[in-house]
Design a protein around this nucleic acid. Structure first.
Length: 1118
RNA sequence: GGGCUUGUAGCUCAGGUGGUUAGAGCGCUACACUGAUAAUGUAGAGGUCCGUGGUUCGAGUCCACGCAGGCCCA
């Protein structure tokens, strides 16, 4: 006979290991995919992690979220392939290698070859792969670790190349520039990482200028002018006057308030109206001058009068045109307009920002978005360049300053009296021209090149771009079809990002990454984009034939430096060298839907079957990372979304809401957590505690609570089942007993169970695991354990093996088995054990694992909302009676005669009657009586139905409510009897109430002690008769005997003989009268009396004492 | 600085479309129960629903402006 496993002390961590071994041994994961062969696929993309660091607890969160839906969809019959992957390129790896070798980027190619450097990167990036694989397994994240895609492999890179080539052929790949920190002294761009080296930001004193940009006197600007002689100027502040010749626009803040001030130029004393931010007026004007008469000013007066004459919002100023400040070079398109910039503040300056698109990244971006050109000239090769050359000198076209360095890059002696910086010279000139409103020294921090110690310039540097703006509208459109969890990330963070899209800058000046497959002639006139190794080899052959490249170079690795050694031949016969850039690593990860299959070079069918993804999940920080690059590439390459559903999960913080970091020592080790509490409790806690998209404050105590409360309760329930089912040899043989032959509580829990199956299904279908987990938890703890099992305990251990008992077993079994299936996506280990423990005896499922099972079908017919309502009523009544007992200090073991329930309608009465038995046994009361209106003793309470009345009476609500409160018992009776009641609102205003306008409840029964909750009231008869008293004693005796049995370690099924010593007459009578009851309850063959029991045990029952002897040996072999 | 997001009991969180007495679990206190027992029940204490205005007969809920935390971007 196979038995249900019974456990003494379940060790959840050990359980995890055992189940893991079972899965491995039997290839359950593989089977969960293989057995769904031919079914509809559910496509999941794994966002590749980088294995150059150790995994943290937040990875458990992220991966649990991924795992849950893959398992769920498998249960629902889909085939879910999950290919793992590794993200291997990028700056973090490079930095780690440099740190370990004690070198900087500067040393690459000198102290260490690029080859060696990249070799180190390749080794480093997979250093913690074993730890990652280990965590993946231990936490139960099912993903194919044996055939992952790896972004540094040649096949993967080749796919990236093929995709780049496609983009190139579509005209989406172009060379342009971005504004980057640049060191003229060193002649090189600087990464933000280099800029953040200590000591790079230094305090410097710069000459700053508030310049006057004169508004054009054209029709659209006339609202800014008061009269035809007025000169109106925008004031804009700059700490880099050398950028002023390159100005093409001004930026204001949309919501910032600006004012027009009538005043005089402090250097030329000419009258002028200036526009600046309202908040900053006091910074430029002396308040003492505010009262002066503006007209009465004469040049040279110390106080310059001013008058605020008008106010605008930034948005009013958008589009206003102004005259070029320093007209050395003309733009190719219309410029010199006011734009809205989100970076504008009133912290300093004037609240108006001067825009030079060639020398600021904000400037560049806002100009590009508004189609404002940059000021450019042509170099000697006819290529466009900015007004400052790469050495940091003004170009000849800036005639007054031609050839002058914009900063001191030549080591001139700044202490010399004649020395003037270029900024100062510009300031002097603008003052003379009446275009400077204020010139002053300003001390601030400014980044310097760590090599030359000179200030950096923000300078346009070559970059390759993907023209994402070309498909912006389509990306926005398709984004609307994606189901974002939470929705706000899709519409907000991601949507806004798309709205403000700029072209994707692909270039990275680094070593360890996917090389840009573009070869160019030196003059840039000819170029080729390579899309495959095959193509490259052909081109190499051509180049070797033509003699531009030496023969015999074999391409084994597509990384640098090997690709850099390849020289190709242009159509016109010139040599072409590779553009030295690497591509953004985000391209690697965004390309994974294609590159993971080496598509488009092969596997067309597999790709098509697995695109787009049904579901992905990653941290919200990936919005502009992976989520974006997947989307961008899919729209451009396939005119499709890359994913249909996406969960953007939040952060895992420590229990105080702080970010976890190894440095602060508040990081939680995932291995430790799983080792201590097992994987299920950790997963369940994380999912049930907060929705994945909220930040989770991770508190290990919460894991303990989850384990105790949810898993402990579930395990208790199973143990209870197993204990008795084993005794009765219940194996779920034969047919299921029809619902109508089961008890009310059986049908109730089955109804609840089916409701749960529905709820969990719809929540998981909606990608909300938290609601699903909470629903399961509430069912297990509240409904199944604390109500169903508690009420039905006796059915399991008492009496013969009849249909009622079988029904109880079947019901509880069904609940447990269904819970195992429902909860298996979230707690895959424990539910596996539970399922197998149950199934190994019953064999009801033909599968060997819960993860190979099908999601339970909802038995619609078993759902009985009416019944669920009734049971709720029973629970409320019981709770009220318990509360009354407590108030009168009457223990539950003391039977009471009756409770009274006032019922105002027939339905409530019927509902309570249906659950009478349950209530009576739960609260130990003999009868329930109902009193209705006809009894005439009910005291009623009336309360306005605000929702209904509000709609009808609106503003008169308060009067109506007051009138309702005043209604007495007779008024209520009238309302009920006649279906209407007149109330007086004001002297000449009355209204008619209907029964629907109010809520009538029974509150009191005169002469009884009552308790009520909501609309339900219960009264309890607390008279204890002699008979009731005896029964109470009998029950107490049973209780004490049961304790004795337990203390003497008797098994549940052991039989005993009982001997009582004579005691108080009440006790003797109780034993006498309830002999059968006591015997049945305690499984006693016989009950006898003795005059004395010197070896007996003394029992205390309230004020009584009795000696007892129980004998387990005699005839205990029933 | 901008975008997004969160703010409800000591802690973790619920609170469709506004309805007057804001809930649960944990923790705390007391009492009870006892063949699920390292479980359970009942009761109690504990709230300026982040603040300020507004809309409304009525706001935890809607609107505006703030404050504080978080993420991303600059």
């Amino acid at each position: 006979m196979v038995k249900y496993n019974e456990y003494k002390n379940l060790n959840y961590a050990k359980l995890g290991e055992e189940i893991l071994a079972f899965w491995k041994q039997n290839g359950i994961f593989e089977k969960s995919v293989a057995t769904r062969e031919g079914n509809k696929p559910f496509v999941f993309y794994e966002g590749p992690p980088s294995a150059n660091g150790t995994p943290g607890i937040h990875h458990v969160m992220a991966r649990a979220v991924k795992d849950i839906f893959c398992r769920y969809k498998t249960l629902k019959g889909y085939q879910v392939n999950r290919k793992g992957g590794w993200d291997t390129h990028g700056l973090p790896v490079e930095l780690q290698v440099e740190k370990e070798l004690g070198i900087t980027k500067e040393d690459i190619g000198k102290k260490i070859t690029v080859e060696e450097y990249n070799q180190r990167c390749r080794e480093t990036v997979m250093r913690f792969k074993n730890q990652w694989d280990d965590l993946t397994e231990k936490m139960g994240y099912w993903v194919d670790l044996d055939n992952p895609y790896i972004t540094f492999e040649n096949d993967y890179i080749e796919s990236c190349w093929a995709l780049l080539k496609r983009l190139y052929d579509m005209g989406y790949l172009y060379k342009g520039y971005t504004i980057q920190p640049y060191s003229p002294g060193a002649g090189t761009g600087l990464s933000s990482h280099e800029l953040n080296q200590p000591g790079c930001y230094k305090m410097v004193k710069d000459t700053t200028i508030v310049a006057q940009f004169e508004v054009k006197r054209i029709t659209r600007n006339m609202f800014l002018f008061d009269n035809e002689n007025e000169k109106v100027c925008f004031l804009a502040w700059t700490t880099t006057p050398w950028t002023l010749p390159s100005n093409t626009a001004l930026a204001v803040g949309k919501g910032i308030k600006y004012v027009k001030v009538k005043t005089y130029n402090p250097y030329t004393f000419e009258p002028v109206s200036v526009i600046l931010a309202k908040d900053l007026v006091s910074r430029y004007f002396n308040p003492k001058a505010a009262d002066l008469d503006v007209e009465a000013y004469s040049p040279g007066d110390r106080l310059i009068p001013y008058k605020v004459v008008e106010e605008f919002e930034g948005r009013d100023l958008e589009g206003v045109e102004f005259h070029q400040l320093m007209p050395y070079v003309q733009p190719e398109k219309p410029a010199f307009r006011v734009l809205i910039g989100d970076f504008v503040t009133t912290e300093d300056g004037t609240g108006i920002v001067h825009i030079a698109p060639t020398f600021g990244s904000d400037d560049f971006r806002v100009a590009a978005q508004n189609d404002i050109p940059a000021l450019l000239v042509q170099d000697e090769n006819g290529k466009p360049m900015p007004l400052v050359d790469k050495q940091g000198r003004f170009v000849p076209q800036v005639t007054d300053f031609a050839g002058q360095y914009v900063k001191n890059y030549t080591g001139e002696d700044e202490t010399h009296v004649e020395y003037k910086t270029t900024d100062v010279k510009i300031a002097i000139m603008l003052k003379e021209q009446g275009k400077a409103f204020k010139v002053e020294k300003y001390e601030h921090t400014y980044p310097h090149c760590w090599r030359t110690d000179k200030p950096v310039l923000y300078y346009p540097l070559d970059s390759w771009f993907i023209k994402t703006t070309a498909v912006k509208e389509r990306m926005i459109e398709l984004n609307k079809t994606i189901n974002w969890k939470p929705e706000s990330t899709g519409t907000g963070r991601f949507g806004n990002w798309l709205e403000n899209l700029v072209d994707w800058n692909l270039s990275r000046s680094r070593y360890w990454g996917t090389p840009l497959p573009i070869w160019r002639t030196e003059d840039g006139d000819e170029e080729i984009c390579i899309g495959s190794i095959e193509q490259l080899n052909k081109e190499i052959a051509k180049a070797v034939d033509a003699g531009v490249m030496e023969a015999g170079i074999e391409l084994n690795d597509l990384h640098r430096p090997y690709v850099d050694n390849i020289v190709l031949l242009s159509k016109s016969g010139k040599p072409m060298h590779r553009e030295p850039d690497l591509i953004d690593v985000w391209f690697d990860s965004g390309a994974m839907p294609y590159a993971q299959w080496h598509y488009p070079l092969e596997n067309k069918e597999i790709f098509e079957k697995n695109f787009p993804a049904d579901y992905i999940a990653e941290g919200v920080d990936q919005t502009r990372g992976w989520f974006f690059t997947l989307h961008a590439l899919a729209v451009m390459l396939e005119d499709s979304v890359a994913y249909k559903n996406v969960i953007a999960n939040g952060l895992v913080l420590d229990k105080n809401g702080n970010k976890m970091s190894k440095r602060l020592g508040n990081a939680i080790d995932p291995f430790e957590m799983i080792g201590q509490y097992g994987p299920d409790a950790v997963r369940w806690y994380m999912i049930a505690n907060a929705p994945p998209w909220d930040n989770l404050k991770f508190n290990p105590e919460g894991v303990v609570e989850t384990q105790r409360r949810f898993f402990g309760t579930l395990q208790n329930t199973y143990s209870f089942f197993a204990l008795y089912a084993n005794l009765d040899n219940f194996t779920f043989e034969g047919d299921e007993i029809p619902l109508k032959r089961r008890t009310e509580s059986d049908r109730w829990i089955i109804s609840k169970l089916n409701t749960l199956v529905q709820d969990v299904d719809s929540n998981l279908a909606d990608y909300d695991p938290t609601r699903a987990a909470r629903a399961i938890q509430d069912f297990v703890v509240d409904d199944l354990s604390n109500w169903y099992v508690r009420l039905n305990r006796k059915r399991f251990w008492k009496g013969e093996y009849n249909e009622d008992k079988v029904a109880a077993y079947q019901t509880l079994y069904t609940c447990l088995e269904t819970i195992a299936k429902l909860a298996s996506p979230i707690a895959p280990f424990y539910t596996e054990q539970l399922f197998r423990d149950l199934n190994s005896v019953s064999g009801r499922n033909s599968v060997e694992s819960v993860h190979l099972a099908d999601y339970p079908e909802v038995a619609e017919g078993a759902i009985d909302k009416d019944l669920e309502e009734r049971m709720q009523l029973a629970q409320t009544v019981s709770s009220l009676v318990h509360s009354l007992r407590k108030k009168h200090m009457i223990k539950v073991r003391q039977p009471l005669q009756r409770i009274l329930i006032p019922v105002l309608n027939e339905k409530t009465k019927e509902q309570v009657q249906a659950v009478e038995d349950l209530i009576m046994s739960e609260v130990n009361v003999k009868t329930i009586e109902y009193i209705d209106d006809t009894s005439g003793i009910l005291v009623k309470k009336i309360k306005p139905n605000f929702k209904k009345l509000g709609q009808v009476f609106g503003p008169k609500m308060k009067l109506v409510a007051a009138a309702v409160q005043k209604m007495g018992q007779e008024d209520i009776a009238t309302l009920e009897r006649e279906g209407g009641f007149n109330i007086q609102l004001a002297e000449d205003d009355t209204a008619v109430l209907t029964p629907e306008d109010v809520e009538i409840t029974s509150e009191d029964i005169p002469g009884w002690l009552v308790a009520s909750e909501g609309r339900l009231t219960v009264a309890l008869d607390i008279t204890i008769t002699e008979e009731l008293k005896q029964e109470g004693i009998a029950r107490d005796l049973v209780n004490r005997i049961q304790n004795l049995r337990k203390d003497s370690n008797l098994e549940v099924q052991d039989k005993i003989n009982i001997t009582f010593a004579k005691a108080a007459p009440e006790v003797n009578a109780a034993i006498e009268n309830y002999q059968d009851y006591i015997a049945t309850e305690t499984q006693a063959f016989s009950i006898s009396f003795a005059d004395e029991l010197p070896n007996g045990t003394l029992l205390d029952i309230d004020e009584y004492q009795v000696y007892i002897l129980i004998d387990a040996k005699a005839g205990a072999t029933a």
